[in-house]
Design a binder for these strands. Structure first.
Lengths: 341, 341
DNA sequence: CTGAAAGCGCTAACAA
DNA sequence: TTGTTAGCGCTTTCAG
């Protein structure tokens, strides 16, 4: 509260002077480090509290060469998917003394490079970054950072260090197989027009190979960008069904547009899954509240966050090195929008 | 790439030696500061790039007493509301050289205090924090931080410094008036059981005073916590209508449960807005895709983020001090779920 | 335009 | 249990 110069922020020295204890011992008390007598401890804490001292981690980090920050880089926050991943990370880091620091790339490789550079310049204890595709510069920064790196969401590719995710290719493949097995043949795809959403791209690739196994080709496709996903799902569904009325299945690249498609079909009185089957991707819990359960595949978002964070905090505590590879298996949730065999 | 000791991270000195230019000049080049000849400039940049040098901002911040970080503290990420605010902040900070750093409190005052303490210990250029209610400790930390503080979302209270938000009390009040004006009389409230969600509480208080103006009391109320909001909205609506079948209006504390309620009513064939009117709060764009437009009130989330960030970056550039107060006005969006006069 | 010296606030390592 | 001495890697300031 009281201070001769209210502008300057307090230092250890202020607490030291106020308590009559050496800076070093004050530092020990504030970090619960080393043996300090109960008495001095109390005096120091009292003084620190009274002054309203907040330690300067910048100085501490520089001196100790230790930073309790974990950089987390994701493409988007509006996607609904990533907030959940971040939730898993936050939760797992909760009691480790590590603090997540988020950065957003908007699916831009350039922005990713900038955010990564910025983060690495704070010398974090680890980096969690979405995806396996990075610019050459970004990749080499990651390789040379000298800290644990965990690439998340996707395992189809060549990780820098550790990786935690699912195979989007396989997710697409298995969805295709399930659809074919259920007897659908005229299949359309609806997705985002995101050239840099590599995971959506891989799902589509996997999906097409799954169809190809049965000698089927994608009958039609429809892309969008921006706007309310639910509404877009309606509009796209309308568009694709008008253009290709003979479609008997619609595969959506995410659950939100899939939900829009489902609502559209129900509105129009289209028999789902009899005349047209539907499936999305992600397993968002929004689907629980819809009139009918959309088929989907859980992307294990929360768990991915947790496992990735656990890898970093493990390294942090044990000083381990070496890339782990954790592939989670998304479960197909057939819901009510695929015909039963 | 090549280095005798691959473990140690590179310093300015390494670049200095590799380029034959003094550390000081290297520093100048890397920060685009002061006049440096084209020739040395090129040599330095070449060396830095070749070595893969990433500056150490910890050291830089300590030496310059300048940190380009903005702390952002929000209660939750799963709420859908906050990712949008963060988006607004990110966008606005884009080209200012400032970097947002996020922290999550889970609506806990204790956690908020811890997160705030952690953030302040990094000496950020400013702090953006949701809400006006903080523990005495947190409040005094904010007051003594010596940096611009922007409290966001809510303006009903006593800000520490600047504030950007809407009046939730007034939002509730106006919604109540609109409902009463439309002729509804038996009104129920459905919301989250979040004792620490002060904004939801204020909306409800404002709502009740709005009803009181017409001599009306809330006829029933229903609370929930956790789970899929859409599904909860259905369940709660079912519960409250079974318990109080004479209700003619349901006011939901957020759009997601409101949307669940709307879907429930449509499923059950309840005449909306004839027999029962519905309204939510937030203006989430999900509503655009529903079979009918739920009445709601836009909480101006993105703009709040932008304005708050602009205040911080303004201070940053101009060194201004002094609290601004920006009250945005949420617009009532009557949609299709309130009877027309 | 370039460099040398000093020090940001803290902690590692050692000494007492 | 406590204190002292040196820096951490950079930037500020002042001199060339």
């Amino acid at each position: 509260m009281a201070s001769s110069d209210p502008k300057r922020t307090l230092t250890l020295r202020d607490v030291s002077e106020a308590s009559g204890v050496s800076e070093m011992t004050v530092s020990r008390v504030l970090r619960n480090r080393g043996d300090v007598s109960e008495a001095t401890r109390d005096r120091v804490l009292e003084a620190a509290r009274r002054l309203g001292y907040v330690p300067n981690k910048i100085a501490g980090a520089l001196a100790s060469q230790r930073v309790n920050l974990v950089g987390v880089i994701v493409p988007s926050l509006s996607n609904l998917v990533f907030p959940e991943v971040l939730g898993g990370i936050s939760e797992e880091l909760e009691d480790t003394g590590l603090q997540p620091v988020f950065g957003v790339t908007n699916y831009s490789a350039e922005k990713e490079e900038a955010v990564l550079y910025e983060m690495l310049s704070w010398r974090p204890s680890g980096v969690i970054i979405a995806g396996l595709e990075h610019s050459p510069n970004a990749r080499s920064m990651l390789e040379n950072a000298g800290i644990p790196i965990v690439e998340i969401m996707d395992v189809d590719g060549d990780p820098v260090d550790s990786v935690v995710g699912i195979s989007h290719r396989r997710a697409g493949l298995e969805m295709a197989r399930a659809i074919v097995k259920a007897g659908y043949r005229r299949i359309g795809f609806l997705g985002t027009k995101m050239p840099h959403d590599h995971r959506a791209r891989k799902r589509l690739e996997g999906f097409e190979s799954g169809l190809a196994e049965a000698g089927i080709e994608l009958a039609d496709r429809e892309f969008y960008s921006g706007g309310s996903a639910l509404l877009k799902g309606r509009e796209m569904t309308d568009a694709i069904l008008k253009r290709s009325p003979d479609l008997d299945f619609l595969y959506y690249s995410n659950d939100m547009i899939g939900a829009g498609g489902l609502l559209y079909c129900l509105d129009k009185g289209i028999d789902v899954p009899g005349k047209v089957g539907l499936a999305g991707f992600n397993g968002v819990d929004l689907l629980d509240g819809l009139p009918r359960r959309l088929a989907t595949m859980d992307a294990c978002r929360r768990e991915i966050g947790q496992r990735a964070a656990a890898i970093i905090s493990g390294h942090h505590e044990a000083g381990m090195i070496g890339g782990e590879r954790i592939e989670l298996t998304p479960k197909l949730q057939p819901g009510d929008t695929i015909r039963r065999a």
